[in-house]
Simulated assay, not measured.
Amino acid sequence: MSSTYLAPSGPRVLAHRGLAVDAPENTLLAFAKAIAVGADYLETDVHASQDGIAVISHDPRLDRVAGRAVAVGQLTMAELGRVDLGHDQTFSSLEATLDAFPEARFNIDVKEEAAVEPTIAAIARTRSANRVLLTSFSERRRQRLAALVPGAVTSVGGSGVLRFRSAAYLRSPGSAARALHGGVALQIPERSGPLRLVTRPLIDLAHRVGAEVHVWTVNDPADMARLLDLGVDGLVTDRADLAIQVLAERS
């Protein structure tokens, strides 16, 4: 099964944890709201529940989103499904989320090693490999995911991004291709501390070696337009509604 994730060509709007306007982040409601405004891509995160199920959650703990001093991995999926996140929403498994939005494309950040096998299982059961992009800050974990889900595409992890930036500085396509190690995208912030990651040479080199550049997290329409002018291929944003409007105005 070949991936359709990057077809057709961008620019792309990736709804960061859905559209959490009048909806809790990373919930079925937030994803539904993102799709309702025209987003085709849903960015999300997974951890593993106590009983080994891939669960949609950015944080490893419930403190911020539910006010409970407990880790995701300390609760079963059934227990997580009873947690009140507001707006009649609760935690959802990755499998249930993929099933709920069968036409959407998912950008899945696998946050921990314990979530690797459950993520693979959820993708296999829903036959979703061709519509997901898998990523992780850990480049080793990202490469493992690429090997275990050959029908999916991946974006480069943290160490790979730094190697690619060095390749862009040296203007070395060979080094850039090796840094990608099979990844199809660089998903990066515009800056990391004082270090500027998103530059015209980096974008040009990424395109030269067949990769896309997706920038996170971009919420201001002026910044969206500026980055699109620079040549980025995707905007990872909390405000998919605004990004869709920016793209419409540019077209």
Rank of each mutant, 00 (worst) to 15 (best):
R144M: 13
S57F: 02
G86Q: 05
T217L: 10
V218T: 07
L14F: 12
G210T: 08
G231E: 06
D88L: 10
L186E: 07
E79D: 11
E103D: 15
S136L: 08
F106V: 07
L19Q: 02
H87D: 11
L62D: 06
D59P: 02
D63P: 00
V209M: 00
R68H: 07
R144S: 11
A66H: 09
V149F: 06
A36I: 11
S192L: 15
L195D: 07
K111I: 09
F106H: 01
V70K: 14
S136T: 02
L6F: 15
W216Q: 00
L148Q: 13
V156P: 06
G52E: 02
D238W: 07
A15P: 04
H47R: 08
L14M: 13
K33W: 12
A168P: 04
S192G: 07
H207N: 06
I53W: 08
A147S: 10
A222W: 03
G38L: 06
R12I: 14
A23L: 08
H214F: 13
R12W: 14
Q74Y: 01
Y41S: 01
D84Y: 14
P201C: 08
G67D: 11
R127F: 03
A71K: 13
K33T: 02
S92T: 11
A15H: 01
R250F: 00
S175W: 07
A39Y: 01
G18S: 11
R165E: 12
I203Y: 15
H214C: 04
N107C: 09
